[in-house]
Design a protein around this nucleic acid. Structure first.
Lengths: 149, 149
DNA sequence: ATACATGCAAACTGTTTGCACGAAG
DNA sequence: CTTCGTGCAAACAGTTTGCATGTAT
């Protein structure tokens, strides 16, 4: 699944922000595109390293920041201390359901969330930026297992 | 604002879970009660230390875990890697609006969130546990300031 | 040519852990 | 008196930073 649009978009973003167009940054972007689900920074770095890339950890972190700023990916924290990323470019806005037992992350959409966020921001007189809804529970595969020891 | 209910509740919880009733645990609870807004673990530890407490960092973290498990406080992560806590006991369920500029955290309630979460859990066949809605934006005090340099 | 990105390792921060001592049950 | 909690410091994980080198502009 090659996506030239994303690369073009990133190029435009880098130019606009007066950041350099470097091969490393595009190597990271490629790895992100290849990695279609939720991933974390260090995992991506390790995976790239395993695949023979010479890009350093620092560059991976730097580039993920830029990709996040550009809106190509987004960063979440599901109650843990490690940040998870996911490709956003061209995707539908959505929210997450996380299984407290196996850690699985699933997505769902509900247009009411956006409306609700807009209402809340309006009453609080905030300029709305982003709304994050995380639903924690136990997934169908994990229900019925041992809960309370 | 002394609250004997909370202490009693915590005592009951500790007994039920067969954990010991120690003065240190109640020292932490007192500090939590005194600290009425959103706080973080290390900040609480430092504050206690400044106030002359001899309770160790490890005990503070341990106790915050137990207080969280008991439902007396709850733990959030507002997109950062440090965990924030807040007193829940006897409070209304609510959600948070966070200012991306000054970091201020405000609260709001909207019964629609619960309904939405229940719907989502039902369609995904999850056993609902908890729903967290964070709204990020720019607060009234910070709008009009320099945004893009 | 020169400012900015990179690679590396070391620093940092928030949190957890291992162990010997002390106190709760 | 035994078991668990404590205090301390050291380990840990994820992320950031400082500096010398390399490279896009």
């Amino acid at each position: 699944m090659d996506n030239p649009d994303i690369k073009e978009y990133f190029t435009t973003y880098l130019k606009r922000k007066k950041h350099r167009i470097t091969p490393e940054r595009f190597e990271v972007l490629e790895a992100v595109i290849a990695n279609n689900s939720h991933f974390d920074a260090d995992g991506l770095y390790l995976q790239m390293k395993t695949n023979g890339s010479r890009v350093s950890r620092a560059t991976v972190y730097n580039t993920l920041d830029k990709l996040t700023e550009s809106g190509i990916i987004s960063r979440y924290r599901f109650g843990e201390r490690l940040a998870k990323y996911e490709l956003m470019y061209g995707g539908e806005p959505h929210h997450h359901v996380i299984c407290r037992v196996c850690g699985k992350i699933e997505e769902f959409s509900d247009s009411r969330v956006g409306r609700l966020a807009r209402d809340a921001a309006a009453t609080m007189q905030y300029e709305l930026n982003d709304a994050v809804l995380h639903i924690f529970g136990v997934c169908p595969d994990c229900t019925g297992q041992n809960d309370l020891p």
